[in-house]
Design a protein around this nucleic acid. Structure first.
Lengths: 350, 350
DNA sequence: CCTTTCTATGACACCGGTGTCTGGTTAGAC
DNA sequence: GTCTAACCAGACACCGGTGTCATAGAAAGG
């Protein structure tokens, strides 16, 4: 709109040739300066650097990518109902990428669709991504990883258990974390503890269920099938799943919901029935999403270090970029902790 | 891991030359096929297309970007406390980008930092982005837009009021939406209505406040300064802001919170004080985030079409790509609607 | 049948960087 | 005073596409 820029971009883009001409050197020398080549005369370097600073020259990443044969784009592939977790993961990855020349390209996919595979293939091959981070539940798809391998696309997968080479995986130990949470309930005196499981096909659902069963088994508590209700990781599914649990007689005195959304559903259902939480019913969720502190009473839950895991995943990916054989010492296994809030109490005396 | 791929990428990347050789034509002809040039012999086209299909050739986007002088990356710049809104916006933009060759690169920034401007400049120039979508409150920064202009970077900004040329802006009409919500409260019989305002410096905070004041003025209700509390769009700020409102005597019978997080804070504070909602206090929030349906009672709120607005923003941006002068007929103004849930009732008879 | 016009294709330079190899200086060794 | 080595910097090809222009062959016109 201003009159002085007729053409696109007032700052007519400078090229390496412009800098070379201004500095009176060859483009290759400028290239050396940019890439911090050690075999450069100090004066030459200073001179070129001064020009670069003055002009504000920025190398064209497309040209660089073309010449180098690889680009600086990391993809994030996800298909997860948990918005909060996706966003935290983005944050973690971006923290790791900050200050590097890498950028993050996001790609939500539809797990249900029968061309997910093609979608993702198109995504990674079209953009020639440097690598991708895959979030659960997509990350549990081994066929996808094989495909990525075939396409020569690096990957790191996130998950609830170590499913792969630690070099390609960042995981939290859901099973143990849930077992801890359930042990906490048992310590409080609970014996009839209900489980709202996550959807079939989610590894996290299985891990959490196994942790639940593990803790009960340890304490010698039997688990009738009726105390396990199926959920879909959604608020609504938590709501309806708890209905079936509430119909039981005797009613469970505590419920572990496999994620916070469902735990919020349990709480809501309890209110609808006039069941007091935590006096008549204890609830523990999983994820530590903000909703846990918005409801009343605030929900006890299991917190896992999403941001740190995202950061670790990204560092694993770009670690190989720095030096092909540079040791990548990011941890692969993260542990979660039980956050105690107001939704757990000893069972009523009855 | 498999023995057949020694080198990176089992599918050694095919180039346009390979296709040209296989098809027995020049690379330019292959290029024409890819770009659907109309002046091509049918047979030639079919032959080349067949080869492309068989081999699974995908043009290198970096080379394309270099030759074309522009790339196919859209940036999303945001600095917003509202996770849900950021994610919905991402979804809307991605919907619009789906099926095109554009990808979305995300870039959260720190508004507080005093090198935000440089950060963003680095982002858009380094990657030579095709264009960016800027979310509030960054989108209210006119200096940023000038800078983007200077860098020759297209942009579309999102906001709560039309701040710019409709070509560069997608906005919702927050003022009118809030006025509607408050009119609803007035219709129910409320006269002492409190406001929890958003942070200074957020245009949305101002618009919502003005809508609030507008509705009261229409009804001839005066607004003492004490009925307005400052918030920061966070749950905690809503919580503490409502304390001051609750200390008033007489207490307001209704509170409009400028976003849902703060509305959730009001609800929480009410519970702490033993104030019944909606019997003794009505609450309306803004945004229609999931938390509104997780709490008890579910919160009435104002819903704005985030996803649709994101889609519109992206289409505006890439619309100019299709044909330089193609009419972009995406709407620029969107309107919000009041969602009635359980947090509003007529004031108590007292 | 020859010229003109149009159509379909190819040759070649170019986009903006990087890798390789070569050549000119300078310094150190004899 | 040479010879050699070390060090710097430049020439040039190349990455994988696209734009421009030339040209061969076919179709149209006289």
């Amino acid at each position: 709109m201003a009159n002085q820029k007729q053409d696109e971009g007032a700052t007519a883009k400078l090229t390496i040739n412009d800098i070379a001409r201004l500095a009176g050197v060859s483009k290759k020398t400028v290239s050396r300066v940019i890439n911090r080549s050690p075999l450069l005369n100090r004066e030459t370097r200073d001179k070129v650097e001064a020009i670069i600073r003055e002009t504000g020259y920025v190398p064209n990443p497309q040209a660089r990518a073309l010449a180098l044969g690889r680009n600086f784009l990391i993809g994030l592939i996800y298909d997860n109902p948990n918005a909060q977790m996706v966003l935290s993961m983005q944050r973690g990855i971006l923290e790791a990428l900050h200050g590097t020349e890498f950028e993050l390209v996001i790609r939500p996919v539809d797990r249900g669709s029968n061309h997910v595979m093609d979608d993702i293939r198109g995504f990674v091959t079209r953009q020639r991504l440097f690598g991708v981070v895959v979030l659960p539940p997509m990350s549990e798809n081994d066929a996808l990883m094989r495909m990525l391998d075939e396409q020569g696309c690096r990957y790191v997968r996130m998950g609830s258990a170590m499913l792969d080479d630690p070099e390609h995986m960042v995981a939290s130990n859901d099973r143990e974390a849930v077992a801890d949470a359930v042990r906490h309930l048992i310590t409080q005196g609970h014996r009839r503890i209900g489980l709202i499981a996550g959807p079939h096909g989610f590894r996290s659902a299985r891990e959490r269920r196994e942790g639940f069963e593990m803790a009960l088994a340890e304490a010698g508590i039997s688990l009738p099938r009726s105390l396990v209700a199926d959920g879909q990781y959604t608020f609504e599914s938590g709501l309806s799943a708890s209905e079936s649990l509430f119909d039981l007689s005797p009613r469970p005195t505590a419920i572990f919901a496999s994620n916070d959304e469902m735990a919020a559903g349990v709480l809501y259902a309890a209110r609808l029935r006039g069941i007091a939480v935590p006096d008549e019913l204890s609830i523990i969720g999983f994820d530590d999403t903000p909703v846990t502190t918005r409801v009343w009473p605030p929900l006890s839950t299991v917190r896992w270090p999403i941001v740190a895991m995202g950061r670790a995943a990204a560092l694993k990916l770009i670690g190989t970029a720095i030096g092909e054989d540079a040791e990548v010492n990011e941890p692969s296994m993260f542990s979660s902790t039980l956050i105690r809030r107001g939704s757990v109490a000893p069972p009523a005396q009855t």
